[in-house]
C-alpha cells in the first residue's frame, strides 16, 4: 500500500478552510453550554426539589443519549413540527449550523453542569462559615467565595470537556456542514484516499487539542497562584 504525501500537502489547506467553522461551532457551543450549565447547576444545588428535579432529568436525558442522535433529532425532527416551523425559532432550526450549535450546546450544558457542581461541592465548608460569621449574605458568599474557588477546582475537568466538545463538532458534518471533517469526507469521496486524508485530519485535531490543553494549563496556573507556598 502506498502513501501519497503529495495528496496530504494538497488537501491539508483545503481542510483548514473548514477550521473557521469548526471554531465557530466550538466557541458558540462552549459559551451557550456554559451558560446553560451554570443555570442547571444552580437549579441542582438550590435545595428546592421543583428546581433540582427538572435539572436532574435534563442531565440524565442528555447524558444518556448519543450526541449524534441528539443532532439528528434537532435537524431532522424539529422541522417536522408545525409549531417550530411557525415559531420565531424557525430561522435557527432551518439552518444546519443553528441546529448543530443548538444540539452541541444542550449536550455540553448537561456535562458541564455536573463539572461545575463538583467544583462547588469541593469548596471548603469551614471557609464559607467564616464568611457567614462575618455577616456576608448567601449571594455574597456565592459570588466572592464559592465562585472563584469552584472555578479553579472545576477547571481541569472543564478543559477535558472542551476537548471532547471540539471532537463532537466533527459530527456536524453529518448534517451537511462543511467544517474540517465535512471537507475531509468530500475529499475522500473524490480521491478514494481515506488513509491519507483522515490521518492528516486526525493530526489537525491533535494540534488543536494540544493548543487547548496549553491554554487551560495557563489558566490553571493563573487561578491556582494562591495555592503555591512560594509567592
Amino acid at each position: 500500500m502506498s502513501f501519497d504525501t503529495a495528496l496530504i500537502v494538497e488537501s491539508l489547506p483545503k481542510m483548514l478552510m473548514g477550521i473557521g467553522l469548526t471554531f465557530q461551532l466550538l466557541i458558540l457551543s462552549a459559551v451557550f453550554g456554559l451558560i446553560l450549565a451554570t443555570l442547571l447547576m444552580l437549579m441542582r444545588i438550590s435545595g428546592k426539589w421543583w428546581l433540582s428535579w427538572p435539572a436532574q432529568a435534563y442531565i440524565y436525558v442528555f447524558r444518556g443519549t448519543p450526541i449524534l442522535v441528539q443532532i439528528f433529532i434537532v435537524y431532522y425532527g424539529f422541522p417536522q413540527l408545525e409549531m417550530i416551523r411557525e415559531s420565531v425559532l424557525w430561522p435557527l432550526f432551518r439552518d444546519p449550523f443553528g441546529c448543530a450549535v443548538f444540539a452541541l450546546s444542550l449536550n455540553a450544558g448537561a456535562y458541564v453542569s455536573e463539572i461545575l457542581r463538583g467544583g462547588v461541592l469541593g469548596v471548603d465548608r469551614g471557609m464559607l462559615e467564616a464568611g457567614e460569621a462575618l455577616g456576608l449574605s448567601k449571594t455574597q458568599r456565592f459570588v466572592y467565595l464559592t465562585t472563584p474557588i469552584a472555578t479553579r477546582l472545576a477547571l481541569p475537568a472543564y478543559g477535558n470537556d472542551i476537548i471532547s466538545l471540539l471532537k463532537s463538532t466533527a459530527l456536524a458534518s453529518t448534517i451537511t456542514l462543511m467544517e474540517m471533517t465535512g471537507i475531509a469526507r468530500t475529499i475522500v469521496a473524490q480521491t478514494y484516499a481515506p488513509y491519507e486524508i483522515f490521518i492528516s485530519l486526525a493530526i489537525v485535531y491533535m494540534v488543536l487539542t494540544f493548543l487547548i490543553q496549553k491554554l487551560v494549563a495557563r489558566i490553571e496556573r493563573h487561578l491556582g497562584r494562591y495555592t503555591l507556598k512560594e509567592g
Binding site: G126, M127, E129, A130, A133, L134, P148
Partner: peptide, 17 residues
Amino acid sequence: RREVGMVFQSYNLFPHM
C-alpha cells in the same frame, strides 16, 4: 453577625485572597 466576631479552629481564611 457583624457584631459577633468568630475565630475557628482551622482558621478558615479565604485562600484565594
